[in-house]
Design a protein around this nucleic acid. Sequence first.
DNA 1: GGAGTGACGCGGC
DNA 2: AGCCGCGCCACTC
Length: 109
Amino acid sequence: MSNKNEDFFQKVYAVVRKIPKGKVTSYGEIAKVLGTPKSSRVVGYAMNHSHQYEDIPAHRVVNRKGVLTGKHHFSTSDAMQKLLEEEGVPVKDDQVVDFEKYFWKPHSI
DNA sequence: GGAGTGACGCGGC
DNA sequence: AGCCGCGCCACTC
């Protein structure tokens, strides 16, 4: 009896928590590290519920293009961009500049 | 319990 | 090279 779904959620949060400051990653990469590369959407769903946790830097998670797709789920539309810029990640037009440069690939869990 | 939805990703056109 | 459509997985109505 394994609450696999909850476990998956916790795994997602664990990875997101490990994202170093000033770096970003994508939903797909997180899903890959968790062993379910096709569940990238579920990662996003998990992030949607991450607001009830405090240690989840959801602003460091963007889609594979580096677009701040989830910014609308923050307190304000520009909160996500502001947080990233404060950490040293330039954002222009809701997209991370030099995304590959600031991309952080999670190793494992 | 079928159908729709979503903070995604990829392939095809 | 950009836009459209499908697949995938968990969740809700």
